[in-house]
């Protein structure tokens, strides 16, 4: 408390000192107080907005949750004609497409970050980093259009090969059997991966770069390979931030709307195959909200929004808990 007060007062004192040393401290106190109230107010507004959004989602989604009860979460019917709604297809679609995205994005981002921070010649670092950051600046609708018009037709030519080779594998083969349309769950996952890679990669790169050189050099001096340095020095040192980056990417993948709507296929059916079309929570809301005429229909869409909110919340809490456990184990080792 004392430290933060001193810190917030420091610029004012400097200012006062530069003008007149005789300017009394009494004039500083109201400005200080005002500034603190103002910042506290900003913080409060954000928290209040969060609570208000949550509250309105619960309020508006309540009729649907009351009508369908817990079954809303585990029913796969979504029938606007007979006003019968269940969220399962969309929950599964959201989780599966995000899972595919993370399975691809995490290793690729790790490779990118490692290349930039450790392996790349220094003249190449700047351009490669800039390009990756530019990827993050592309609006999601552009990814959607690119996915639909360029990637999907190309991917449709790969899918017959997947049918023949991956589809024949025992166990996971069923995931890769289906009509070669180029759109569907797998396409959505891949495009999502491309969208979240810049987020995860730039965080990983930043933290890899700040790993103390002394640690790395010591490991190299002991005869470690680059991989061993990455695995046993850089990763343990940066895991908190790396986990944070991964979950930031996951958060973006879960809520991504426009790009997914373009390429996931928008079919309200559950299917074992990743080549079949599906739907995510965000895409179904984007698709159907404008024409949701009945009260229960609209309420069901808002209840879906609430579920997405809760899923994202759980992801964040999970990330925090994991980081806490990592920190604890780190301290335990030290002691």
């Amino acid at each position: 408390m004392k430290g933060s007060e001193a810190a917030s007062r420091a610029p004012l004192e400097l200012h006062a000192a530069s003008e007149q040393k005789s300017a009394g401290k009494t004039s500083v106190v109201p400005a200080d107080f005002l500034f603190r109230s103002l910042t506290a107010f900003f913080a409060f507004v954000v928290a209040a907005t969060l609570v208000a959004i949550m509250g309105s989602l619960v309020l508006e989604g309540w009729p649907a949750l009351r009508t369908f009860g817990w079954k809303f979460l585990i029913t796969s019917t979504w029938d606007p004609v007979s006003n019968d709604f269940g969220a399962l297809v969309f929950i599964v679609g959201t989780l599966v497409s995000s899972l595919i995205a993370m399975l691809i994005a995490v290793p690729v981002s790790f490779g990118i970050a490692l290349f930039i921070s450790e392996l790349s010649p220094s003249w190449l670092r700047g351009p490669v980093s800039a390009v990756i950051e530019l990827l993050a600046a592309i609006p999601s609708i552009i990814y959607g259009m690119w996915g639909l018009l360029v990637f999907a037709p190309w991917f449709a030519q790969i899918e017959p090969w997947m049918n023949d080779h991956l589809g024949a594998l025992p166990g996971i083969g069923v995931l890769f059997q289906g009509p070669p349309m180029g759109i569907g769950m797998l396409t959505a996952g891949i495009v999502l991966a491309i969208m979240v890679i810049p987020f995860i990669a730039s965080i990983m790169r930043d933290v890899f770069m700040i790993t103390p050189a002394t640690l790395k050099e010591s490991a190299y001096a002991l005869g470690s390979t680059t991989w061993e340095v990455a695995r046993y020095v850089i990763l343990p040192y940066t895991r908190t931030a790396v986990t944070g980056g991964i979950f930031l990417g996951l958060g973006r993948a879960l809520g991504e709307t426009m790009a997914v709507t373009f390429i996931i296929g928008n079919a309200n059916n559950l299917s074992a195959s990743l080549l079949m079309p599906g739907s995510s929570i965000a895409s179904v809301i984007a698709n159907e909200f404008t024409e949701a005429t009945t009260h229960l229909y609209k309420s069901s869409l808002l209840a879906l929004g609430l579920i997405l909110f809760v899923i994202t919340f759980i992801v964040l809490v999970f990330a925090k808990l994991m980081l806490l456990r990592l920190d604890n184990s780190l301290e335990g080792k030290k002691a």
């Binding site: 019917t77 979504w78 029938d79 606007p80 004609v81 007979s82 349309m181 759109i183 569907g184 709507t261 373009f262 296929g265 928008n266 079919a267 309200n268 059916n269 079309p277 739907s279 698709n287 159907e288 024409e291 949701a292 005429t293």
Partner: peptide
């Protein structure tokens, strides 16, 4: 099985926006 509305519970197919 399906009926008529602005959105439907489609038995088959893919959806374009």
């Amino acid at each position: 099985k399906v009926g008529a509305n602005t959105s439907l519970n489609w038995p088959v197919g893919v959806g374009g926006k």
